[in-house]
Simulated scan of single mutants.
Amino acid sequence: MRYSLFEGQRDIILLIARVLLVILFVLSGWGKLTGFEGTVGYMTSLGAPAPMLAAAVAVLMELVVGILLILGFYTRPLAFLLALFVLGTALLGHPFWNMVDPERSANMTQFLKNLSIMGGMLALAVSGPGRFSLDGR
């Protein structure tokens, strides 16, 4: 049996990881909810189909799923679902391959940030939330 340096801290590290991974989503989702009309306008500007529905889905995924992940409720499936959502937002919201600099560089960074977040979500989907979660109770 291999011993990890952080094995005794695993559950607290997973809690911190969950919070750090999703705080961006919770804050962004709250902003989308409180400025819903602007969110619909932004979805329209992106060419999203059914912009009002797209805005509602964004609020649901970012705010509601984000809060559930912080609480550690249905962590594995919701982390996987949020990873898919992040992939969709990367492809729809940051198509850097269709742009020229400086817009290209900024959107490429945002696209790669989304891929990094996906990696964290997939790791969370595999590892689970740890003991300090609703799933762990």
Rank of each mutant, 00 (worst) to 15 (best):
G72M: 04
A55H: 10
N98F: 06
T75K: 04
I70C: 03
A90N: 15
V22C: 00
P95W: 00
L20A: 15
I70W: 00
I13C: 12
L84K: 10
A83C: 14
T75E: 00
E62G: 03
L78S: 08
W97D: 01
G35F: 01
F80R: 12
T44I: 01
L68N: 05
L68G: 10
L78H: 07
L84V: 11
M61V: 07
H94P: 14
G41Y: 05
A54K: 13
T34A: 02
L46M: 06
M43Y: 01
F25C: 04
L14N: 10
V26L: 12
L33M: 09
F36A: 02
H94S: 11
V65L: 15
R18M: 10
V22D: 00
F73R: 06
V26M: 10
L91I: 15
P95N: 01
L33C: 02
K32V: 03
P51K: 05
V86T: 15
M99H: 09
L81C: 13
I13P: 09
S28W: 10
L46Q: 03
L33A: 04
L82S: 14
L91E: 05
P95A: 00
W97K: 11
L71F: 07
G93E: 02
I16Q: 09
L91K: 15
L91W: 15
W97N: 08
L60N: 02
S28Q: 11
L14K: 12
A83P: 14
L20M: 14
L91M: 15
Y74N: 03
T89G: 15
G29H: 07
T89V: 15
G88V: 05
L68V: 03
Y74W: 05
A58T: 07
N98D: 06
L21M: 13
K32Q: 07
E37I: 08
I67T: 14
T44E: 02
L33H: 00
A48C: 09
V100L: 13
M52G: 05
V19R: 11
M43E: 00
R18V: 05
A54P: 14
L84R: 12
M99A: 04
G31C: 06
M52D: 03
A55Q: 11
V64W: 11
Y42I: 01
E37S: 13
